[in-house]
């Protein structure tokens, strides 16, 4: 465990909690892509099946349980409890265009052709693109609430910190996981355009809105 990985994990946790609290406190999930949240719930479910097979540390287990729990709570709020506020008309990204190629790739490029390992690989690939429905929704409506942009910022920050973590681990532990690294780079790149808008607009106190 190094400082980049820890802050990366905490940043990820912050993103998840910010989103959940925003929805809970405002009793509204307007502007949030339910599809992205379902994809994230699927990501955590398929990745953390090793909760049942191997114990790594109390920290590891606790964080996994919190991530899974929060992601399902978010999906529950969006599709059940606060369904009336869900902006489904603008959440029109076709997720099968992500799931099918990602599933195929997980079968073709993995560390080991076993069920758990393929599901883990699937979750890594899926996570790298799971935010696309949310970004698509923002590009469609042309704006995002400031709190939503904070959520996206912490989610992107988590990824950027993990990249530094992998450089660290390569130098000091000789560890590298090519699948995680390539997917992580792709994921971070997807956030770059958003980061630019966040720094130039949101941090200067303006609302994030895109030119028509």
């Amino acid at each position: 465990m190094n400082i980049f990985r820890l802050t990366g994990d905490l940043s990820h946790l912050a993103a998840i909690i910010i989103l959940l609290l925003k929805i809970w406190k405002s009793r509204s999930c307007a502007g949030i892509s339910g599809k992205s949240q379902v994809l994230f719930a699927l990501v955590f479910t398929t990745r953390y099946l090793d909760l049942l097979t191997s114990f790594i540390s109390l920290y590891n287990t606790t964080m996994k349980v919190i991530y899974i729990g929060c992601s399902y709570a978010t999906v529950y709020l969006i599709y059940m409890k606060l369904k009336a506020t869900y902006d489904g008309n603008h959440d029109t990204f076709r997720v099968e265009f992500l799931i099918v190629p990602v599933g195929g790739l997980a079968f073709l490029v993995n560390h080991d052709f076993s069920p758990l390992e393929i599901l883990w690989t699937f979750s890594i690939y899926l996570e790298s693109v799971a935010i696309l429905p949310q970004l698509f929704m923002i590009s469609k409506t042309g704006e995002a609430e400031t709190i939503t942009t904070h959520y996206l910022f912490f989610l992107g920050l988590y990824r950027a910190l993990y990249l530094i973590n992998w450089i660290w681990r390569f130098y000091f532990e000789g560890f590298f996981d090519m699948i995680a690294i390539v997917a992580g780079v792709v994921q971070t790149i997807l956030y770059c355009d958003f980061f630019y808008l966040y720094v130039t607009k949101v941090l200067k106190g303006k609302k994030l809105s895109l030119p028509a």
Binding site: D50, S54, I56, N60, D112, E117, W120
Partner: peptide
């Protein structure tokens, strides 16, 4: 071959 990959990252 029985080998389980340990993925220690989140």
């Amino acid at each position: 071959r029985e080998f389980t990959y340990i993925h220690d990252e989140l």
